[in-house]
Design a protein around this nucleic acid. Structure first.
Length: 459
RNA sequence: CUCCCGUUCGUCUAGCCAGGUCUAGGACACAUGGUUUUCAUCCAUGCAACAGGGGUUCGAAUCCCCUACGGGAGGCCA
């Protein structure tokens, strides 16, 4: 059997839609799984919206997801050019082939593909007009996902517009023939058009490739498939928001495919090894950002400190959280503390801003709640001398010192924690308190507790 | 209007092709409890589905038919 060749043929629109990304991913996975070639072909026939910037969004998105192509823009290949706008002479040659075979004709300035069979006139309710239809033989598609699909194409269709530009159905088929594509893996929205494509393959004397129509991704809420305008639809947004590419890739792989066991979090090598058409679902899948977020959290947690800092530091900087004077060691210590608690990189600046800024906000509601359990200033006054005088300001020393004090007062050490945390962060939650004290350092801790006591001194 | 594809917990899905082991499994979310002397972690438990009807069969989530619902296509868009 000849080498597998698959392609992803996007139209650069300026967005990299999650559905397109998933189609790209499935093609790429199949190529990598079977040791075949993955070809990137740019369908830039619509001149108006095809810009350099739009192409860049696409290529950057592909690279971000780790989907490398064996042939295509910037890497070349033996079947180029890989932009449809540069393949006009090829389309012209194929058009002549069709004309010679008597399978095309001109009408109203456009060129039509001619079906074979007995013709008849009939009224068509959809077109709301009298049309010519053909008693054509049905086309049978053995779809790798759906099994046998039978459909009959019964009307001629335009392959070259009045302005001379060839339409999608035609160029798509020509390119697939020219590029030796063996498997066409695409969204189910193309399933109904596949009969057109098979007719064209046959008329051009080519054997159609194998088809695999994958289910669509539906929007999170409401009816219909996901479109660019829907919440969470764009790959570049996830990149910007600090989602990990591996997590996004893992999640979209699971949207419409599963390995038939209970494993969900998989390395990319694992996914490549397990990917096959038998595991592709038939039903459409609804996109769920919460599950993506959960998977992303898992990926974030297992990052080593170095990688986590590498990803997190620029986000803290761009959020303006890190003050100029903060040392690299301090930043790293903070990130180490926060990594196990962080659910996303996106939330990280908010999560750890108080480590750097003294003017964090004291949540009034929390203070009220805290005060109900006992005056936090009283507790802090007890603790302050200890913290400022303790020999070594490390987590375990602080702990034993606080414990000793607490038992003298016949209190639990627990009683002091919320007040300390609140004075230091203005929050009720966060990283483990004792290591947090150690990281913040005596000076900062003492100073914050002092100013808390003063600022909230009543009457 | 026509054609094509689909339908299992709120969501993603396993099971279906080769009917019994399914009182339908897992994950996300949610709820409750526990642990964590803080917590956003972790653990446990709970909630929750075979679209409806008919048929075949000793037996149907699984096979067949019908209906309903959802999605897609029917462009000189891709």
């Amino acid at each position: 059997m000849s080498k597998v060749r698959v392609r992803f043929a996007p139209s650069p629109t300026g967005f990299f839609h999650i559905g397109s990304a998933r189609t790209a991913l499935f093609n790429w996975l199949y190529a990598r799984h079977s040791g075949g070639d993955f070809i990137l072909r740019i369908e830039d026939t619509d001149k108006a919206r095809n810009t350099e910037a739009a192409l860049r969004v696409l290529l950057e998105g592909m690279r971000w997801l780790g989907l490398d192509w064996d042939e295509g823009p910037e890497v070349g290949g033996s079947c180029g050019p890989y932009f449809q706008s540069e393949r006009q002479s090829i389309y012209k040659a194929y058009l002549e082939k069709l004309q010679q075979a008597g399978r095309s004709y001109e009408k109203e300035g456009a060129i039509w593909f001619k079906l074979q069979g007995e013709r008849y006139q009939t009224y068509d309710a959809f077109h709301k007009a009298e049309v010519e239809k053909v008693h054509n033989q049905s086309v049978v598609i053995e779809d790798a996902v759906r099994g046998r699909v039978e459909r009959t194409e019964e009307m001629d269709f335009v392959i070259v517009r009045k302005d001379g530009s060839p339409v999608f159905h035609f160029v798509n088929v020509v390119d697939d023939i020219e590029m030796g594509i063996t498997h066409v893996i695409r969204g189910e929205d193309h399933l109904s058009n596949t009969s057109k494509h098979v007719e064209l393959f046959q008329a051009l004397g080519a054997t159609p490739p194998k088809f695999a129509h994958i289910p669509l991704i539906l929007k999170q809420q409401g009816p219909g498939k996901m479109s660019k305008r829907d919440q969470g639809a764009l790959i570049e947004d996830y990149a910007e928001r600090g989602f990990m590419a591996a997590a996004v890739r893992n999640y979209i792989a699971l949207l419409g495919w599963n390995p038939k066991d209970e494993q969900e979090k998989m390395s990319i090598d694992d996914i490549i090894e397990r990917f096959d058409f038998a595991g592709v679902n038939k039903g459409n899948a609804r996109f769920d950002e919460r599950k993506l977020a959960s998977l992303n959290t898992d990926y974030l947690r297992e990052l080593n400190l170095e990688s986590f800092c590498f990803l997190a530091r620029p986000r803290l900087h761009s959020a303006g959280v890190i003050e100029e004077t903060a040392s690299e060691d301090y930043i790293q210590a903070v990130l180490e503390l926060c990594q196990p608690k962080a659910r996303s990189l996106e939330s990280l600046p908010e999560l750890c801003a108080y480590f750097f800024k003294d003017d964090f906000e004291l949540n009034a509601k929390l203070l009220e709640k805290l005060t109900k359990k006992g005056d936090p200033r009283m507790l802090l006054r007890e603790v302050l001398p200890l913290l400022s005088s303790i020999a070594s300001f490390d987590a375990s020393s602080i702990q034993s010192s606080l414990e000793a004090h607490a038992s003298e007062q016949s209190k639990k050490v627990f009683a002091y924690f919320p007040a300390i945390r609140f004075a230091l962060s203005g929050q009720s939650g966060g990283p483990d308190l004792l290591p947090m004290l150690q990281v913040m350092g005596r000076e900062r801790v003492v100073q914050r507790i002092q100013s808390f006591i003063e600022a909230n001194a009543t009457e």
